[in-house]
Structure formats: C-alpha cells, structure tokens
Design a protein around this nucleic acid. Structure first.
Lengths: 224, 224
DNA sequence: GTAGAGAGTATTGTATACAAAACCCGTTGG
DNA sequence: CCAACGGGTTTTGTATACAATACTCTCTAC
C-alpha cells in the first residue's frame, strides 16, 4: 500500500464508491494525478486496475469514465456472484478443516456482537461479513475462483446500501451464516451451495427493493 | 492493435502460449521491451494485463514470471468455464433471436467444412469454434459474464492440445454444437446449459487424458 | 560450515517531457 | 439546417531519466 499506484488505486476507488465521483464522470489522468498527489504514471496503472474491476469504463478512444450501474447490471452481478460464491461454498464444504471451520465461526461470532449492540455497528458488520466470506473463499482453495469473485465482491451498490439494513435483516444474515457453518461441519457441499446462493440472492432483493418503485415489489410479492 | 502496449501484449502472450517463454521463466521488463521493440512503459502495461489473465504471476516483491499450470489449476479453470459458459448458454437460449441463431449456425457450418477436408484445418476449426462461442456469449448479453469468461477462454492448455484432436473428436464437437443450436431454437435454457457444461467438461477430459499417466485413465474408465 | 552483514548489481517504481491522437467549436458549403 | 472541415485545445501514449527497492555474492564472525 505504500506504492504510489496503490495509493492512487485506493483513492480513486473510494471516490467512486463514496459517490464523490458520480457515475458517468470523466476521469482525466492529469486531474486525478493532482488529486492523489502522484504523477500520471501510477494513476494510469490504477485506472487500468479499476477498469478490470469494472468500476471504470473506457471508450473506444481511450477516455475513462466512472461506470454506471443499471438495475440490470446489478442483477447480473448478483446472479454471477450467487453462482460463484455457491461454488466456493461447495468446495469449501468438501475441503473443510477444523481450523477453517473455527475461523468461519469466529467471524460470525464477532459479527453477532457487532449487530447486537444498542446501536448496530455497521462498519463492524461489514468487516466481519467480509472476513466470513474470505475465510470460505480461502478454504475453497481455488486461486482462479478467488480472482473472479474479487471483481464482484466490493460493488458500489453493496457498499452504500448496507447502512439501510434493518436490525432484522442483519440478524437474518447472521442466521444464514450459522446455517452455512452447520453445512460446513457436516461437509455437505450441496447444502452449503444452496444456502450461499440464497444468501446472496436475498441480499440482491434487499437492494432491488430499495432501488426501484414499489410496483415491482408488489409483482414480486404476488408471485410468491 | 496499433498501440505499442497492444503489440507488447500480443507478443508476450503468444510467446507464453507457444511455449517460447516456458512456465516459471522470469519476465524482466527491460528484456521484454527490447524483444518487442518498445520501451518499458507499454511492456509494464502488457504485464499487468497478462497478470489479470493469470498468464503471468508476480511475487510479493513485484517480479513477474510465466505462470505454471498444474493439473489441478487446469481442472479448476475448466470447472469454472463449464459453469460460466453453461450460464451463458442458458441466458442465450432465453434471449435467442433468429439473427443470433443464424450466426451461431453459420459458425458451425463453417466449422464442419474446416474439419471435413481430407486434411482437417485445425486453425480453421479453432477460429470457427471461437466465433461459435463468441456468438453465444454475445447473445447472453452480460458484459460482466463476458469479462469473467475472457480470462478463461484462451488458455495455453487448449491452445496446444487442439492439434492432437482426432477426426472423431472434432466431429463430436460439431455434433454437440448442433445439439446446442437445437436447444437454442427451442429456447430451452436448461438444456442448453447442460449441453454446454458437458461440452466443456469433455474437452477437459480430452486434455487430462493426454497429460497424465494412463493409470488415471483406467481409474476413470472403471468408474463409468 | 553456516548465518548474517554489506557492497555492488539488477530490476522495478515514479516523474516528466514530448509525440500522437481525440475533442471542441466555429466556419463553410451544400 | 446539417454535414463536413480545420485549427486550437485537451487528453492520452510512449520514451527516458532517475530514485527506490530487491537480489546476489562475497566476506566475516561464530
């Protein structure tokens, strides 16, 4: 993190995630360089990385812009994430060790603490949630799967909606994590995969409900 | 493709795919720059892209090496590719248009021509195969899925084993493609997904059979 | 004989200058 | 009114110099 290009990457990324750089904004290399206090060289490198993350879009003439996320794009990303994290959960269940299981359970215990306080600690929740999923991904033991998921996990979307979660939603997450831990303990890959997929897709619908008109919600509820 | 960094990317990539740069070889920026006839700047950019493709590995101290592929890594990659191309096939089936279907069928007709000659045209086969899968991916209409698959499709592995395919194996590929086209015509997403997954996994086993001792083959066959 | 220190070498990281390409905008001709 | 054309401006691409870091190999101390 001490390299200038890493600083530029983090700085630009958090400007995008926080909304300081809104969707569609042009990302001039010179301007960013000045903002980050580095030269254009590391900024260029950071932009390429962000492009790979799909947070930045480049036109056919090499201009960079903050990517905008339509509801379809978000649905897409969650759909993929559900499939891939499902695969990770299955693999993790098949490869589970006592040590990994304990790490996963410890993360969820800390998560429970964070959300059980009078005023839920959302940052703590996010951190524990990240650690929980990271532990699973590591246990899955596929560098390639980890790389693919890397571009899907920290989306602007999740970032900004976590703070709207109700206490009930936070506790439901905790409960699903507990169920996952049980599936892991039993080494039941199919179960773990199914729980994980539903866990991710529930998060998607929480997002979608908050970001589209109530009409769609009605349709969805009617279909259930 | 006229930009120096693109030339460097292609040049280095094909040196890796062809085996001219063997697995584990160190990739010094200066040496590559000289080989490609450009300066270090575009070479650096190319290396970062190849790193994202997982063709190049970097140590914790920023040295780059040609990634080596264990059989497990390859199995991993094919497994992921089967899942993701399966998803693409399902989505494509759901979104199929007459125009897309015709493009897909045309690609497979050309593929059939290429392999039906007295001396099968392997390069032609590869090109038609690429176009066939590209057409499906485009019809699937998910930029993100396309991006994820991008890092999985052109592996050193596939590249170097296609030339060993028997005439029968080539025709089996053509037949599976035909079956896919039928599933697309019926808009049967589940069928398309299943065919595609088995199509990819068959290719994996063709590779694995060629690259490990015959003992494993016996085990595999005994299990069938 | 081995571990550690240190000088010297090789390699990567960053800044900057200049070249090339794209963009903006006013103009002109149909 | 619109499309095509230039010229000035902005933005990106590449080369290069220098700084910082990592590596190598020898020498020394134990």
């Amino acid at each position: 993190m001490s390299r200038a290009s890493d600083r530029a990457y983090s700085a630009i990324r958090s400007m995008i995630l926080s909304g300081e750089l809104p969707a569609g904004a042009q990302l001039g290399e010179e301007a960013l360089a000045e903002k980050c206090g580095v030269s254009r060289t590391p900024v260029r490198e950071a932009l390429r990385r962000l492009e790979a993350d799909m947070l930045v879009l480049r036109t056919d003439t090499q201009r960079s812009f903050v990517a905008d996320w339509s509801l379809d794009d978000v649905a897409d990303a969650f759909d993929l994430r559900a499939k891939l994290e499902g695969m990770a959960a299955r693999r993790a269940a098949e490869r589970m060790t006592p040590k990994s299981l304990e790490r996963i359970r410890a993360a969820n215990r800390m998560l429970h603490e964070a959300i059980s306080q009078p005023q839920p600690d959302i940052e703590g929740f996010l951190e524990c949630n990240r650690e929980f999923h990271a532990a699973i991904l590591e246990t899955a033991g596929s560098r390639r799967l980890a790389a693919l998921l890397g571009t899907l996990i920290e989306q602007p979307v999740v970032w900004r909606t976590a703070h709207q979660y109700s206490r009930e939603a936070l506790h439901r997450s905790h409960g699903e994590h507990e169920e996952l831990a049980t599936a892991f303990a039993r080494r039941d890959g199919a179960w773990a995969e199914a729980i994980m997929a539903s866990h991710i897709l529930r998060a998607y619908h929480a997002y979608a409900d908050a970001h589209r008109g109530p009409a769609a919600i009605t349709v969805r509820e009617a279909a259930e």
